[in-house]
Simulated assay, not measured.
Amino acid sequence: MKVTQRAKWRYQQVRQARRQIRYKFKPFKHTRVTRRALAAMVQRVVDQSQRYTLRAHKTRQDEYKIVINGWPDAVQVTVGVHSLSFLVMQHADFCDFLLWPDCMPRRKHGQWRCFDTGCLASGPYHRLEDLLFNHLAEPFLEFLTKVPEQAQLMLYDMEGMHHACVEAVKPLKRLDRPEHPVVCWPLPAGSDIV
């Protein structure tokens, strides 16, 4: 091959390689705008919680921890831009998620959308705060409002498979055997319920 043909061939190879990696949308990066939107969304969650009072603490630059007043310390609620994890953890290996909504926010043509394949209402949203609230906070707030009166938070261990649930009934006696230990916490009624 001549030098010019070799240079042209290399140029074409580089263009083909770049074409394969090209995204239809920009990859998500944390910026000052996304951090402000996350902070505004967390504040909306705290303000709109009607049944239980919530407190939010910033744990990292792009993550918040929400504490539900009156609930046990085993409950850990962590909110980020990509997901909200509602976790019950007794030990490092004895845990289960009560709720775990996720979101894949992307900005395209000046509007925010969720590019998760399982998402039914993907947008468009004019503000990232609204997208995060609809996809992450609303399922969490709905779960808290549906907690029954005199509920108990239970964590089962069924032969290595952990299961957490919130129920108004007491655990069955057959699950109290040593091979199925149950951890149970009574939950407060909440501010609405008299």
Results as ranks from 00 to 15, higher is better:
W9R: 09
W9H: 10
W9D: 08
R10S: 08
Y11Q: 14
Y11N: 12
Q13W: 00
V14C: 01
V14L: 01
R15G: 00
Q16F: 00
A17V: 01
A17I: 00
A17R: 03
R18H: 01
R18K: 06
R19C: 00
R19S: 04
Q20E: 13
I21V: 07
Y23Q: 15
K24D: 13
F25S: 13
K26F: 03
K26P: 03
F28A: 06
T31R: 09
R32M: 07
R32V: 08
V33W: 14
V33D: 12
A37G: 11
A37N: 10
A37M: 09
A39G: 09
A39Y: 11
A39K: 14
A39R: 14
V42W: 00
R44F: 01
V45Y: 11
Q48H: 10
Q48L: 06
Q48E: 10
S49A: 14
Q50M: 04
Q50C: 03
R51M: 08
T53H: 08
T53Y: 05
L54H: 09
A56V: 08
A56P: 07
H57S: 15
K58Q: 15
T59H: 07
T59L: 07
T59V: 13
E63V: 11
Y64I: 05
Y64M: 09
K65E: 15
V67P: 05
V67C: 09
V67Q: 13
I68P: 04
I68H: 04
N69F: 00
N69H: 04
N69Y: 01
N69W: 00
P72V: 03
V75F: 03
V75P: 02
V75G: 02
Q76C: 05
Q76R: 10
V77D: 05
V81A: 14
S83Q: 15
S83H: 13
S83M: 09
L84G: 12
L87T: 06
L87W: 08
V88R: 11
V88W: 12
M89S: 14
Q90Y: 14
A92S: 11
A92M: 08
D93E: 13
D93G: 03
F94T: 04
C95I: 02
D96Q: 11
F97L: 14
L98E: 07
L98I: 08
L98R: 07
L98Y: 06
L99E: 04
W100D: 05
W100I: 02
W100G: 03
D102T: 15
M104S: 15
P105I: 04
R107H: 06
K108F: 03
H109S: 10
H109I: 01
H109M: 07
G110H: 04
G110T: 04
Q111I: 07
W112A: 11
F115Q: 10
F115N: 06
F115C: 08
G118K: 15
L120R: 13
